[in-house]
Nucleic acid binder design. Structure first.
Length: 793
RNA sequence: GCCGCGGUGGCGGAAUGGUAGACGCAAUAGACUCAAAAUCUAUCGGGGGCAACCUCGUGAGAGUUCAAGUCUCUCCCGCGGCACCA
């Protein structure tokens, strides 16, 4: 008996089910539940006006699959969504069109919302957040005030990119080869007072606590390298005939006998001091010129190995190597960075690649002091291992062992309009006066012009009504801070707001935080590993320290997805015209096809190019699932051993692959089972139902439609995830691979679990084995139980 | 340059140190059709052979091992990040 079905038409079913699911609220998370909680998180989309990218669909579908599986496993799942709504693209669009950014955000968010819904993602839409909403950024500002109160926010002069022609500050992205992206003229660096956050105070904990977390190893490694903890020594070198001295940081104090010169960073404070003081050296103007030129180059240019090293000697000045009292020259060179260590190094050409290059160019001596791990040419330390020598030599020269980090404090100011205003008042008498918490949110005022100003200040500086205020402390006239916060601010804590998005009294209720934190699984891009991920861990740790959140870390588990590239392997971009719009796939082939294709197209963690031909394969797969329905029969007698074994293996495989985010092989397993179904005249209903449940997280609409067509009343998405049992064939036979001298030569079927000796006898009797051995004596036989025999002759 | 990741058929890829190429796309041949599309069947890494089968083959080179796509080292190429795009 064939069941009568029409052809698979995604247009008839996808919208229908999306509406029904939303009306029934089946994806809503409950703040109180007897079920265990599970918090799934994806990086919320950054609003840019280009709409949803197929890359968003990739990572959101992946986490959607996990969220759906967790619900079927009996968890109370939180899978929320929101918008990262401040930032440059919206601001630039506002400058171009004159439309208020808030309105642009409203439209853009509406498009994203519609697109996300079209994909059948199981978000809890009641918890949507938007970082540019004053009710949201009120709490971003609140967190800033807590940071300020606790001494973690401070102001410091920092260089910013400056376009000499536009007279505005530029983001790094807007500077291309030292030229302004807008007008093409030269850029420079300019010192500007900036708000800083002291993330370095958390460096050690951010490093150590990675041990507690379930992050992919490559993510931990990259964070650790970014934090860059290193043990070394600070050693003072005196300057001959002067009270001045230079403190260097080195990770290799053992090599000090090979230190043949010192290097100061061009922006080292001592340089400026030397230049203005009456400290005597003969080429002051040359040094000054070098320091100014160095400012124009980026750090990547400056420190690149292979690129020619440059530097200028401070002529007539010598430092004394404290190990051997030798006089050595001092250079200023841009391969040394002011903000790392002490901004000065002792150079050991024999044991450092970059020092070696520099020494070669300037004909500086090269003295080898470590050979095969042992000290040489190092006076009384000769013969010690390099490790032993580190602390002994440091002590001998009066240095101090010291831990340093590569991590730098976070530049938190932007001279831009479209960001959270920094809630402080600057008073000539009282200094920095934080706004009272009751005055939050400090809303962005309406402005005429969204462009940064020619003084380098944010457009807010031009809104005199807003800027000029009375000092809350002394009541004298004062000004508001006009810098705004970077996007990283709002995105550093958004996952906490999802927990209680409408709370007016706190960023989230304590009990709700207690229930939902930490995030159980956070997936995002590798490109966010060192900035967003680290910044939000820092904020969370701070909030923990002030008792505002109950967990030390925000995210229990972190995984990452690969980018989706355009057909030829290039990045998708509007200007190249190679962008795939998910809308067009959803309307022509359906959301289920798009979801299945993106999960099947390749390994989730790796970058992959879009293949327009590949999409149809996923559509064909779903059509075959649809057609299989017509062969379903409820007759129990049809259940069959071969299919049953494969079905159970598939349940296991799909479940395990989802956990490891190996979605491509999970779908492949579903295809293999479908191929098996198709070989039979009828498909037992019980098998087909399990099949639909396994498919449901990937293709929720078609699975639901077929499920209801089978006569089920409740949504498939409220089903339980199936259990499997691993069965063997009733005759218990297994195929064993036979290798002779590691080459595949034969197979044999034997009973599973056969003893080695019995197997050896059987194998050696095989005619093919005898032929290949050709009378040669058997030296050894390697046996992998129930799998393989390798005969070595 | 530094840090991280990757390189397997025509293409996307699969493979707890144990049968390389699962699954899918494209292609070729056939069936169905007046025809086409769709669908179904078969073939599908290179070389040799009527065939059984043999042989070479996972970016290049070396090494460890009974056994290497997988582990180690060197090199080449591609991608992500490098702190104001987010």
């Amino acid at each position: 008996m064939e069941n009568k079905t029409s052809a698979y038409d995604h247009k008839k079913i996808e919208k229908k089910w999306q509406k029904k699911w939303e009306a029934d609220g089946i994806y809503k998370s409950k703040d109180k539940s007897k079920k265990p909680k599970y918090y799934c998180l994806i990086e919320f989309p950054f609003l840019s006006g280009e709409g949803l990218h197929v890359g968003h669909v990739r990572s959101y579908t992946a986490m959607d699959i996990i969220a759906r599986k967790r619900r079927m496993e009996g968890f109370n799942v939180l899978y929320p969504i929101g918008y990262d709504a401040f930032g440059l693209p919206i601001e630039n669009f506002a400058i171009k069109t004159g439309r208020p950014p808030a309105l642009i955000v409203k439209d853009t968010a509406a498009t994203f919302r519609r697109q996300l819904k079209d994909n059948g993602l199981s978000f809890d839409w009641d918890r949507e957040v938007n970082t540019s909403d004053p009710e949201y950024y009120k709490w971003t500002q609140w967190i800033f005030l807590q940071l300020l109160k606790n001494g973690l926010a401070y102001k410091k002069k920092m260089p910013i990119n400056w376009c000499l022609s536009c007279k505005i500050g530029l983001a790094n992205e807007e500077v291309i080869d030292s030229r302004c992206e807008r007008c093409g003229s030269e850029t420079d660096k300019r010192e500007k007072e900036q708000w800083m956050l002291a993330i370095t105070k958390y460096a050690d904990r951010l490093d150590k606590d990675l041990d507690l977390m379930d992050y992919l190893p490559k993510i931990k490694t990259q964070q650790r390298n970014w934090i860059g903890k290193s043990e070394g020594a600070e050693i003072v070198f005196n300057i001959k005939g002067s009270d001045e001295s230079i403190k260097v940081f080195t990770t290799r104090p053992d090599t000090i006998f090979g230190a043949t010169y010192l290097v100061l960073a061009p922006d080292h404070p001592l340089i400026r001091e030397f230049l203005i003081s009456n400290f005597q050296f003969s080429n002051k103007s040359e040094v000054e010129k070098y320091a100014i030129e160095a400012k124009k180059r980026t750090e990547i240019e400056r420190t690149a190995e292979g690129k020619e090293k440059t530097g200028v000697e401070l002529e007539g000045v010598k430092a004394i190597n404290p190990a051997n009292q030798k006089e050595i020259p001092i250079y200023v060179a841009d391969y040394v960075l002011a903000h790392y260590g002490t901004g000065a190094i002792m150079a050991v050409p024999a044991h450092d690649e970059r020092d070696f290059e520099f020494a070669n160019k300037y004909n500086l001596p090269n003295i080898e002091v470590v050979k095969e791990g042992k000290m040489i040419a190092s006076g009384k330390f000769d013969g010690l291992t390099s490790e032993e020598a580190k602390s002994k030599i440091t002590e001998f020269v009066g240095g101090q062992m010291k831990t340093t980090f590569k991590l730098r404090d976070w530049v938190f100011s932007r001279q831009r309009y479209w960001g959270e205003p920094i809630p402080v008042i600057l008073c000539d008498t009282c200094g920095i006066v934080p706004l009272a918490e009751k005055d939050l949110p400090l809303k962005l005022p309406k402005v005429e012009n969204y462009k940064p100003t020619e003084t380098g200040e944010s457009p807010l500086a031009a809104v005199t009504k807003w800027v000029n205020v009375k000092c809350p402390t002394c009541k004298g006239s004062a000004k508001r801070e006009t810098d705004t916060m970077p996007n990283w601010a709002g995105s550093s804590w958004y996952f906490l707001r999802y927990i209680d998005p409408k709370n007016k009294k706190a960023f989230a209720d304590k009990n709700k935080l207690e229930y939902w934190t930490p995030v159980d699984w956070y997936n995002g891009g590798m490109e966010h590993t060192t900035l967003h991920l680290l910044y939000s861990r820092f904020w969370h740790k701070f909030l923990y320290d002030i008792g505002a959140v109950p967990t030390v870390e925000p995210y229990q588990k972190r995984t990452s997805h690969g980018l989706i590239l355009a057909d030829g392997g290039e990045k998708m971009s509007k200007s190249k015209g190679n962008v795939i719009n998910p809308d067009s796939i959803v309307s022509t082939l359906g959301a289920d096809t798009l979801r299945v294709y993106e999960m099947f197209m390749g390994p989730f963690s790796e970058a992959i190019a879009w293949n327009p031909d590949g999409v149809v394969g996923s559509r064909r797969f779903l059509e075959r699932v649809w057609r299989a329905f017509s062969k379903v029969s409820a007759d129990k007698k049809l259940e069959n051993e071969d299919i049953s074994i494969l079905l159970n293996q598939t349940i296991k495989k799909v479940g395990e692959d989802i956990e490891e985010m190996k979605f491509n092989t999970a779908i492949s397993a579903l295809m293999i089972l479908l191929n098996e179904f198709e070989k039979h005249e009828v498909i037992p209903k019980s098998y087909y139902e399990i099949y639909l449940i396994l498919l449901a997280p990937f293709a929720p609409h078609i699975a639901e439609e077929l499920w209801i067509m089978l006569g089920n009343k409740k949504s498939i998405h409220l089903s339980l995830w199936p259990k499997y049992k691993l069965e063997h064939k009733k005759d218990g036979k297994i195929k064993i691979v036979i290798q002779i001298n590691s080459k595949l030569r034969d197979f044999v079927e034997v009973m599973a679990g056969m003893e080695d000796e019995a197997l050896k006898t059987i194998v050696l009797e095989r005619p093919i084995v005898k032929k290949w051995l050709a009378g040669q004596p058997v030296e050894k036989m390697f046996i992998v139980k129930d799998k393989l025999v390798n005969i070595v002759s």
